[in-house]
């Protein structure tokens, strides 16, 4: 390989840097593949309480407040009025609140929705697909997704009216 020596050296060193960089990068920053602030919100396709299939795509151009909840989780129950209030306040400004019920059946969800009196769209994640793709562990967890489909912020735990208001305000102003 005599004369081709330098180029070959460069190519090999380049490959090492490339693969090595990938290896170090993926082990240090790669993490677990869960969405973080600033990353693209994973798409989902879930059956809504209205009998329709809902996707993230259909809310394109709107700011989405994606709330993961269960009827048996008491902080989830307690934050429902705040979510409902904010839904009513912001729905005309291109904000949509979507409740994702985690793993419960239709009857439970219907009764619950009736009981707490909410009317924003509720979808049912019976197979826990969205739970997986959003990397949810404790509930409630709320994702604030901007109109471009990027995760703006993530809130774990119960939301109160004022933080919710501030968060949505921030989401809309961007």
């Amino acid at each position: 390989m005599g004369k081709a020596r330098k180029p070959i050296q460069i190519v090999i060193l380049f490959l090492i840097v490339l693969l090595g960089g990938y290896a170090i990068g993926s082990s240090v920053f790669g993490g677990d593949g869960k969405p973080k602030e600033g990353s693209r919100a994973p798409s989902f396709e879930l059956l809504g309480l209205d009998g329709q299939t809902h996707t993230l795509k259909q809310y394109k151009g709107k700011a989405v407040v994606l709330n993961f909840w269960g009827s048996w989780c008491s902080p989830c129950v307690q934050e429902m009025p705040a979510l409902q209030a904010q839904w009513e306040k912001w729905r005309d400004q291109g904000v949509v609140v979507v409740g994702v019920n985690v793993g419960e059946d239709q009857m439970t969800v219907e009764n619950f929705v009736k009981m707490v009196g909410i009317n924003f769209p509720v979808v049912m994640d019976t197979g826990r697909d969205a739970v997986r793709s959003y990397g949810i562990s404790p509930m409630p967890t709320t994702f604030f997704i901007n109109s471009k489909g990027k995760v703006d912020s993530i809130h774990i735990g119960q939301l109160d009216l004022s933080t919710l208001d501030a968060q949505i305000g921030k989401l809309v102003s961007r």
Binding site: I12, I16, L19, G20, A23, I24, S27, V28
Partner: peptide, 19 residues
């Protein structure tokens, strides 16, 4: 074993093996 320095060591061993 997921730290930057340990993975870097493995990468450098890889480079050393090739070169």
């Amino acid at each position: 074993y997921e730290s930057w320095w340990f993975v870097s060591l493995l990468v450098m061993i890889g480079a050393s093996l090739v070169i």
